[in-house]
Amino acid sequence: MNEITFREAFKAAIVEALNNDPRVFLMGEDVGNYGGCYAVSKGLIDDFGAQRIIDTPLSESGFVGAGIGAAIAGMRPIVEVMTVNFSLLALDQIINNAATLRHMSGGQVSVPLVIRMACGAGKQLAAQHSHSFEGLYAHIPGLKVLYPGTIGDARYMLEMALADPDPVIIFEHVMLYNQQASLPEKHTVAPMEKAVIRKTGTDLSIITWGGCLFKALDAAEQLLNLGINAEVVDLRCLRPLDRTTILDSVQRTHKALIVDESWKTAGMSAEISATIAEQGLWYLDAPIRRVCSTEVPIPYATHLEQASLPQVAEIIAVAQQMIAESQIAMGDKE
């Protein structure tokens, strides 16, 4: 089987885009001579030259804004921000400009920009290199937010994002870069705004995305041995959110467990919970549960870091608890 790493998948997508469209260029900190902080763009400067693989100074607001401007001028920039934590320095450009210009101009200005960011914890990088802020970006009308958790999405979502007329943010979880999987055929990859059921099941829906997807699938596998058949919903795109797929799944399984590597408070998991509560409350036979990061800045020490993150064992324990709760509740009704 043709196995590649996520890193290779992300890179292949960039190479293809550069080959297919002269308007595409890659810009960011250390994407050229260094080869990318996570080595995604290694060697590309040799193949495509410094005009299309542009090393930028450490000016997140400046070069993200420059990407927006170049997109307005008709280019198709891919801007790499080294990590989502650094993207906070560019929030002004992303939120006040990229997300608003189309609307504020009455539809005249289009910003077909792709911003890639590494994100997530697990490499003992502590509180300024490990956070998950996709929920923050998913809050903003005008942006689209993608978070590939499979090798197929890592390989093919960039092309869809570049074809989109609006600013699209793609998150790349740092723990995925070295993972290997066989690359599916392109035609089997769903459109970018669709959630996908990665494993069907009947007993509960585990709703997740990105860096937590493999944990959810692992948990689902182990739950099977415990007699629980969990469905795993991969959201893939956090804005616009495919609420239909979430609600359809919950309607079938009657239980929703959300796994999110960011914090619970005012986060993505809260939005998904609210969606289910608003539109699918009567489907439920157990309370909605969430497995999220502990509400601390991610710590350095490995045992503390791991304790702060969603883990497979916790997903399994909460799933078992939900099944037990629903059985008690059903018993009460009888």
């Binding site: 260029f25 005009q51 607001s61 400046g62 070069f63 993200v64 804004g65 420059a66 990407g67 927006i68 401007g69 170049a70 997109a71 307005i72 001028a73 008709g74 280019m75 920039p77 002004d92 450009q93 006040n96 400009n97 210009l101 504020m104 101009s105 200005v109």
Partner: peptide, 25 residues
């Protein structure tokens, strides 16, 4: 005429980018 930007200095990076895009083309 690309705005009308109400974030002080917010248009400067855009100007750099439009110039970059035009130059590339």
């Amino acid at each position: 005429f690309y705005g009308g930007n109400a974030i002080v200095a917010g248009a400067l990076p855009l100007a750099v980018g439009i110039a970059l895009g035009d130059k590339m083309q």
